[in-house]
Design a protein around this nucleic acid. Sequence first.
DNA 1: TTTTGAGTTGTTCGA
DNA 2: GTCGAACAACTCAAA
Length: 461
Amino acid sequence: MVRAGRVTTVLWLRRDLRLADHPALVAAAKEGPVLPLFVRDERSTVAGEPVRCRLEASLAACNDASDGALVVRSGAPAQVLAEVAREAGARSVHVTTATTPGARARDRAVAERLRVGGVELVALGTPYAVDPGTVLTAGRTPYRVFTPFARAWRDVPVEPPLARPPVRWHRAVAGEGLDESLVRRGRASGPAGEVAAREQWREFVEEGLATYDERRDRPDLDGTSRLSPHLSHGEIHPRTLLDDLRRSGHAGSSGAEAFVTELAWREFYADVLWHHPESAWRDLGPQLSDMAHDEGPEVEQLVEAWRTGQTGYPFVDAGMRQLLATGWMHNRLRMVAASFLVKDLHVPWQVGARHFRDHLLDFDLASNSHGWQWVAGTGTDAAPYFRIFNPVSQGKRLDPQGDFVRRWVPELAHLEGAAVHEPWRHDGAVTGYPPRLVDHAEERREALDRYARARDRRTSR
DNA sequence: TTTTGAGTTGTTCGA
DNA sequence: GTCGAACAACTCAAA
């Protein structure tokens, strides 16, 4: 039996839209009634429509889970929080600790503003199993290489998940209500919310985990966990996932190991961003930052073709169209499409990173920025400038029957099997599908040339 | 301090 | 068709 106090606490929800395993909520519930609040910060809302709809659906689920207690307000967070705290008679606002640069800066400013009004901002927990910034080398420096980070990260004892606490909801404050039309459209793109996240996880453990290792890299097979949108909205916490694996006896199996490694990547990139906040949109390392990039109106046309899935390379186009249509893209395609933009079209990685940010339902700043930098060669990848994906051989290897391409590029539906990866070799029958934007072999050489020139410039300094 | 082994996911070329 | 080597040089992390 929890002996709750009487003072209302505001629970400012951001990317932690769940009630179980939520340290800030547990602490708030001990103080007394809890007022769950979501602030629509119009200035920071740059996301595309599917992203906004997904968030709305997740908020609706959160509202249901809290018996309709969720309050949504629009405005600058500091001002809204001060108002709501005053209306509710709250003396503290609880949050999950923000770890990305913009959110950290915002929270510092908000804490300052609230303090002036006698309200304390209390930050507890993070969206990660191991808090960013806490895994260090023997020399107490942050890691910059994945493998040693992952080894050290695995050795950190992970706290057991917290149960959902009994909560008395504070209901005396009015909000704006949700946009039902957005909610409907959000649900159409996939189930949202904590219950759906747990269901997805349970189903994955039962049906997908055993073969995850061998199937996850195949976009035609649907072998991924599909948890990323849930994780990015905080509908389920990675601590819960790790704990479930341990307790269910799956830990140690090849599928579970591969899945844990993917979680480790998520945590690694969050850690790198924590230590290097400027790397969100700037090159982390100098290796390739001198690379010459193209720009201008013609390049903008190339980029638009890339965005809309009209590059003439079916595997790339299938991935880009999957993104626009569903808000999700298989990780293999993210790499192939990113490589194409950066190495074949010679466009700065930030251009692609912004497109992903605006369209991915699972957008995560750290993973996005550093995934792109890994491809561009400016990030944590140790070296291989020569890692330039061939969109045709990648397609043949990872979509051997061509099923994935035909699903997203119906213009090519008449081509059978792997022939769909090279429509230019089956000319005459193809209508409505563009010719190749560039010649991959040529642009690969060009990218290597540019790298060599950047290296020469650097070494001659 | 110095040394040593290693570094997600690839491609091409030539034997 | 298969297979191993080459693609550079550098930085990281630990011994």
